[in-house]
Amino acid sequence: MSATARKSAPLPEDIRARKGGVPLVSLTAYTTPMAQAMDAHCDVVLVGDSVGMVLHGLPSTLGVTLEMMILHGRAVKRGLSKAMMVVDMPFGSYEESPQQAFRNAARVMAETGAAAVKLEGGVTMQETIRFLVQRGIPVMGHVGLTPQSINTLGGYKVQGRGAAADALIADARAVSEAGAFAVVLEKVPAALADRVTADLPIPTIGIGASAGCDGQILVVDDMLGAFTAFKPKFVKRYAALGHQAEAAIEEYAAEVRAREFPGEEHLFAEEAPEKKT
């Protein structure tokens, strides 16, 4: 069932039921206009902590706060009616204990209207995911490259190669067994992503994983070419909005300095024009 055929947003159980079906379409969003643009085309819209890098100029996602996620979650929710909204739990808001995770996740859901939250980690987060799910908070998992752990992972490296494959599989299984309704696989070898997808009863959503995953997600600013600081290998740019915006701003600046803008058509007369009857 595609997003364009729906009259209302799916629930987490609807997403779980898509396992092995038509691939799930997901993108990140941080603003109302962007959410409106993708609402009819996406199954899941993620308010990602990538907002820290693409909108706030942070060097990583580690500086993102709960308040930032709630602010952007509210904005995105205003633009959605057909797609399901999931909000990232930011670094430091859930790792301390299941109780901390519940308090903060409950706040996120209550204040944004999200249908679910997403958190990073596998085996180490199994107890926390189970605790949340048992208390009515749907969870999307995230294993493989977990950006909030880049300092311990040694950077944005491919995860699960060689002997590390078994640990990644264990992480994915732990997330599923804890009750998550779906799991993001980030930056893992394609063959391993296919193994995990075949192994799990819940949908896998790939980002730098495999076309065989049950769905795909990208950061919207990456795929639109709006964020140009760097381009990950797994990103396909479907537009070049960053360069187009810069060219438009350059043209505007030139016209202002040459007094070509504003033109007569942009100005107002001393008296209001008479309305035609």
Results as ranks from 00 to 15, higher is better:
V54E: 13
V54P: 11
L55F: 13
H56L: 12
H56W: 10
G57K: 06
L58I: 01
P59H: 06
P59K: 01
P59W: 05
P59F: 07
P59N: 04
S60H: 11
S60L: 08
T61E: 04
L62R: 15
G63V: 02
V64N: 02
T65I: 09
T65Y: 12
T65K: 15
L66N: 03
L66V: 09
L66M: 07
E67V: 01
E67F: 01
E67S: 11
E67L: 02
M68D: 15
M69C: 03
M69Q: 04
M69E: 02
I70T: 01
L71A: 11
L71H: 14
L71P: 00
H72M: 11
G73W: 03
G73V: 08
A75T: 02
A75H: 10
V76F: 10
V76A: 12
K77H: 15
K77Y: 15
K77S: 13
R78A: 13
R78M: 13
R78N: 13
R78G: 09
G79Q: 14
G79N: 14
L80H: 15
S81I: 06
S81V: 11
K82A: 10
K82L: 13
A83V: 09
M84S: 09
V87E: 04
V87T: 05
D88F: 12
M89D: 04
M89C: 09
M89T: 06
M89Y: 11
M89Q: 08
F91P: 03
F91V: 07
F91H: 14
G92W: 10
Y94D: 08
E96K: 12
E96P: 00
E96A: 12
E96C: 04
S97T: 12
S97A: 09
P98G: 07
Q99P: 02
Q99F: 10
Q100Y: 03
A101H: 13
A101F: 10
F102H: 14
R103E: 11
R103M: 01
N104E: 11
N104C: 03
A105K: 02
A105G: 01
A106E: 13
A106S: 14
A106C: 06
A106W: 07
A106K: 12
A106I: 02
A106M: 03
A106D: 12
R107C: 00
R107Q: 08
R107L: 08
V108W: 05
V108N: 00
M109C: 07
M109G: 00
M109F: 04
A110S: 13
A110L: 04
E111T: 03
T112Y: 08
T112R: 08
T112S: 07
G113N: 05
A114W: 02
A114H: 01
A115T: 03
A115W: 03
A116I: 11
A116K: 11
A116L: 12
V117G: 05
K118S: 06
L119E: 07
L119C: 07
L119Q: 10
